[in-house]
């Protein structure tokens, strides 16, 4: 635990500031995958959408192919410490799509077999026999893991993952995605054109109810979601790159060269909910 704390101090001290900023979109990137809805029942259908950035969208590359999207859906994974690998290959299937959207009918899992509820019941019995309790407990919720392998030749490749909580019953309200009401640049909506080197306020306004109240299952305490705002730009610099709670704005310093910028703001509720908004800014050379 002391080592954890030392790590925190090192992080706070800003180690590693020499790298490319994570908010700067240069190559192909995924800025978020939203699930509609982030929490579903075992008989529901869920739609996932990847919000990605292709550099060709701001610097046209004639003849460039379209991005590719390969989805891999897994019934259960132990998470990041195993790089979201599926716990059992029998619970996994790859699905290719033409675009950044995938729809899954949980009554017919992509890897085949009976409906998800039945499969989880079988898996729970197997796990219990091996001494593992509460692994496939739909009452508590089971994370459905969806990996996305996407990119474009010559522009880069990204592995990304999104987990959708599958939970039986509706005694506890299911989590919903936050909702962005407005994404303003310099206080303005619409198309923005600014001279090089200009500094602009980026501001996002959330719809009422975006930060939901829920009961934390670990502590049993009623808690309100604290929204995390992540900003991205294809040029210039945003500072700060992230904010939480009331941090609904940042400052964009546009580059010194004329170009079109794509800006994203991704808002997360910390429980799988995500909203993404996008704007375009034209940076013009001074007359």
């Amino acid at each position: 635990m002391r080592r954890v704390f030392v790590s925190l101090v090192l992080l706070a001290a800003g180690c590693g500031d020499d790298f490319e900023r994570r908010s700067l979109l240069q190559a192909y990137r995924v800025v978020g995958i939203a699930a509609d809805a982030p929490e579903v029942g075992p008989d529901d259908t869920v739609t996932l959408r990847a919000y990605d950035f292709d550099p060709a969208s701001v610097r046209p590359e004639p003849g460039a192919p379209a991005p590719y999207y390969i989805w891999v859906v897994c019934g259960y994974s132990l998470g990041s410490v195993v790089q979201y690998d599926c716990i059992d290959s029998r619970l996994e299937a790859a699905v290719g799509t033409d675009g950044p959207t995938l729809t899954i009918d949980l009554r017919r899992p992509p890897w085949g077999g009976p409906d998800l509820r039945t499969q989880y019941a079988i898996a729970a019995a197997e796990a219990e026999a091996r001494g593992l309790d509460d692994v496939f407990d739909l009452e508590a919720g089971v994370p459905l893991t969806v990996k996305l392998y996407s990119g474009r030749d010559g522009a880069g490749h990204v592995d990304s993952v999104k987990q959708v909580l599958v939970r039986e019953g509706d005694a506890t309200p299911r989590n919903r995605n936050p909702e962005i009401a407005a994404f303003r640049i310099g206080g303005l909506d619409g198309v923005i054109a600014v001279p090089t080197g200009e500094a602009l306020f980026l501001e996002v306004e959330m719809a009422p109810g975006s930060a939901e109240t829920y009961v934390d299952e670990l502590t049993g305490e009623t808690t309100t979601e604290e929204l995390l705002f992540s900003w991205f730009t294809s040029g210039g610099e945003v500072e700060p790159e992230r904010g939480f709670g009331d941090g609904t704005e940042t400052v964009l310093t546009v580059p010194e060269t004329a170009q079109r910028l794509r800006l994203f703001v991704a808002v997360r509720d910390g429980r799988g909910g995500l909203a993404v908004a996008e704007r375009t800014v034209d940076v013009l050379a001074p007359p």
């Binding site: 635990m1 002391r2 704390f5 925190l8 101090v9 992080l11 706070a12 800003g14 590693g16 994570r22 995390l228 992540s230 700060p240 790159e241 992230r242 904010g243 939480f244 941090g247 910390g270």
Partner: peptide, 24 residues
């Protein structure tokens, strides 16, 4: 004892933010 406040989420991990306290 050590206690500090991260004003902004750490670049490396956005959950690292806010108050931290350690007493031994």
């Amino acid at each position: 004892a050590l206690s500090f406040l991260l004003d902004e989420p750490a670049d490396a991990d956005p959950v690292l933010r806010g108050d931290f306290r350690n007493e031994i």
